[in-house]
């Protein structure tokens, strides 16, 4: 089972060009919420049809009753098929909760896949409330319910629109590391992307951490960076561990800023 950093299942696909991308598989709870939204949508549509057929019943109660029975069945079975086909793997509930049904190999979703995954739903619902489908999905490495397995589809989470928060950090103070460009260069060479990300995350989330934990966290991160590149003692003595980490992050992420506009996180 492939899990991402947050412990969620991911679907990994490699393109013929050699590019690998990971998609986060939708969680059970989110899917359940989407199912409830879809249930409400079906009920709303049914009650609208019920109202319309009541008017029709003035002319022919039998025909109105037949029409309601048939339309209700068509909507309850066809809703998922129609919406997922029309909106490329999304029903109302999935749209709202930013989920999408995709082909498990990343290819275009076909109508037959949508039909199969929706028509096999009754077996996933057994004995009630998606218990069988839920249990199967929990153990399946791609989070597939039985209908998804037969259709070779996976429900994934769609990431939010790109919002970068490095801009939110103020660029006000002087970064003393800028006086040592050769050490900054060495820092950029030696620090791995994942280490830089940890440091950036620690800065962005500093206010969520208690004072003691924060001091300890930045001490450890700073110690790690110090072990990679050794700045002069007077530079290191003048600043706190947190400021040291901020300077490291600023040096790494803002390498093109000129010395005339020194920055610091």
């Amino acid at each position: 089972m492939i899990l991402n950093l947050s412990g969620r299942k991911t679907l990994q696909i490699q393109t013929p060009e050699g590019v690998v991308f990971n998609l986060t598989v939708a969680g059970l709870f989110t899917r359940f919420l989407a199912w409830i939204v879809d249930g409400v949508a079906i009920m709303t549509a049914s009650s609208i049809i019920g109202t319309c057929t009541r008017f029709l019943a003035i002319i022919s109660p039998d025909f109105a009753n037949a029409l309601f029975i048939i339309l209700y069945a068509v909507i309850s079975v066809g809703y998922g098929i129609f919406t997922e086909w029309r909106w490329r793997g999304q029903s109302w509930g999935k749209r709202l909760l930013r989920l999408r049904v995709i082909d498990a190999s990343g290819l275009k979703l076909q109508l037959s896949q949508i039909i199969i995954r929706n028509l096999l739903r009754p077996v996933d619902l057994l004995p009630a409330c998606y218990l069988l489908g839920g249990i199967f999905s929990f153990w399946n490495r791609r989070g597939q319910r039985l209908g998804d397995l037969a259709a070779n589809t996976v429900v994934v989470s769609i990431p939010d629109t790109l919002v970068l928060n490095t801009q939110s950090l103020k660029e006000a103070k002087y970064n003393s590391f800028r006086d040592y460009p050769h050490l900054e260069s060495r820092l950029r060479q030696r620090v791995k992307p994942v280490e830089a990300a940890v440091a950036l995350d620690a800065i962005l989330r500093r206010d969520e951490i208690s004072l003691e934990a924060r001091i300890e966290l930045f001490r450890q991160i700073a110690a790690h960076f110090r072990s990679l590149v050794s700045f002069e003692d007077k530079v290191e003595e003048m600043i706190t561990d947190e400021q040291f980490v901020r300077n490291v992050v600023a040096s790494i992420y803002r390498q093109t800023n000129s010395r005339q506009t020194p920055v610091s996180f």
Partner: peptide, 29 residues
């Protein structure tokens, strides 16, 4: 070369969505 989860997820999502459109080789119905 970078470790920014937001950009990574965003680009993965873009590439994944287009991948199906571009690499689909199954005969269209």
């Amino acid at each position: 070369f970078a470790s920014s989860p937001e950009i990574l997820h965003y680009l993965e999502s873009l590439v994944a969505r287009a991948y199906g459109e571009i690499h689909e080789t199954r005969e269209p119905r």
